[in-house]
Amino acid sequence: MVIAKTKPLEEIFGMIRSCRSLLIVGCAGCTALCLEGGPREVDGLKDRLGALCKEEGSPCRMEGITLERQCEMEFIEELDAIEGDYEAILSLACGAGVQFVAERYPRKPVLPALNTTFIGVNRAVGLYEERCRSCGDCQLASTGGICFVTLCAKSLFNGPCGGSHNGRCEVDPEIPCAWCAIYERLKGQGRLESLLTLRPPMAWKNGVRGLQVHEDFKDRYGR
């Protein structure tokens, strides 16, 4: 899922300081699952921002609502009936959700409350690890299911570099060396041969905006 992290309160307050009415919109999708953007966080943020506004003597009317997802227009539509009552919208979705809300209400400032950090996994409660850079050309079949694009600090295609040390990355001893892990896993599977030949340069596909039409819907979108 998409992992995000709430921005520092001062930064968020800086965005809304001059605002007299604010709609705080949570997302029950990924950011709720990583405990940053669901109804609980909407309420918490409303309270903390409310306290700051009070302190500064600049009252702001705030209301909170959490949508099913902010990356689908049919859920965003729920805001149509109420958004007119607010000067601005503060979104607790990932960057995609914020942009989709902003697209629906182009005359209104739509502000991000979170920093979208990565596509990752839930290692344990409150502990998330990045696993995918959505490079568009998945290499995992030949690397024992370990992504070097994401997990090697240099995204090396033919690692490990000379900086692996005790199975750790030279950049940070807390970080395992992805290529050492790949080597060990493939060795365990008896599949080391995939590391013996040169892996050619990647045809990076993420230089321009991704747009994808499902096979079954080609006629509908005329592509």
Partner: peptide, 10 residues
């Protein structure tokens, strides 16, 4: 921003 478009072998 680290580039690492290609690696040393490439």
């Amino acid at each position: 921003k680290g580039v690492y478009d290609i690696d040393s072998l490439q």
